[in-house]
Structure formats: C-alpha cells, structure tokens
C-alpha cells in the first residue's frame, strides 16, 4: 500500500505540469482552464452571440491570446475582465452586471410573478351559496312533475 501512496499523491502534479498551447500561447493546464472560464464569460463583439472562447473571429482569437498572456502574467480574473470592459463596455459581459440600466431586466421575474398574482386575485370568483333545500310542498310538486 505504502509503495503506491507516493505515486498516487503525485498524480495531480502530473496534470499540473502538463503544458498546453492554445492560439500560440503556452501555459499550464490549470492556467488554460482559468483562461477558458474567463473567455467563456466574454462576448465576441464581431459575432455578438458567441463567447470569445467559442468564436472563430480574428478579434476573438486576439482576445484569447491577450487573456492567456494576462493569466500567465498572474493577473486576477477580475482585472482581466475589467481590461475588456474598459475597452469594449459592459456589452462584452455575457451576463450583464446589476446596475441602474439593468434593474428592470433583473426585476422582470418578480414583476411577472406579481402581475400573475394580481390577475389571479382579480379573476377569482366568489362562491355562490348553494340554494336552500326544497320545502315539503315543492318536493311534492317536483314529484308530481317528474311522474
């Protein structure tokens, strides 16, 4: 058992040590994973509905290179995302931040629910009380009619 313990413990180190090259930048696997996570949050401005990671546009490729260079340089996720927002505006963020411009967007589910509740409340019907039981005379007349 002990013979296997040390090699087993070193298995993650193998993954760590593996270098990958993407778009001409060489970085470690964890760095590449981080870069992909950052690029996945950013919109490619040329195609507008793809992330920088997924897009085949030249600009997206250049931005992927920049992200990887910053990752290798040890910059934080936030500073890399800020770098992009500073240049391209909040439109590069695939998930819009909560800010005055997007309050309505984020309030929409709540507003829709409130509207639904209101419609439900307005549309509810008042229960009509059941009719009084027939008197003996009425019951006799009913019997007579149904005969």
């Amino acid at each position: 058992m002990r013979r296997w313990l040390l090699p087993l413990l070193l298995v993650p180190a193998l993954a760590w040590g593996q270098m990958v090259t993407r778009d001409g930048v060489t970085l470690t696997q964890p760095q590449e994973t981080r870069a992909e996570a950052i690029g996945g949050q950013l919109r490619c401005l040329v195609c507008q509905n793809e992330s920088i990671e997924a897009s085949g546009a030249t600009l997206a490729k250049q931005l992927r290179v920049i992200i990887r260079q910053h990752v290798v340089a040890g910059d934080s996720d936030k500073s890399i995302i800020d770098f992009m927002v500073q240049r391209y505006g909040i439109f590069v963020l695939l998930k819009p931040p909560v800010m005055p411009l997007t309050y309505l967007l984020y309030a929409m589910p709540g507003l829709a629910l409130a509207l639904g509740v209101l419609a439900f409340w307005l549309g509810r019907r008042t229960r009509v009380p059941p009719p009084a039981p027939l008197s003996a005379a009425d019951r006799d007349r009913l019997e007579e009619l149904l005969k």
Binding site: V46, L59, Q62, R87, G89
Partner: peptide, 12 residues
C-alpha cells in the same frame, strides 16, 4: 498587429 485597435475598443 491590431493591438492598438483593441486598446481603442475597435471591433471591426
């Protein structure tokens, strides 16, 4: 290189 364009926020 297109790098100045990126600093300007040029996307095409």
């Amino acid at each position: 290189s297109g790098l100045t364009a990126i600093n300007w926020g040029v996307y095409g």
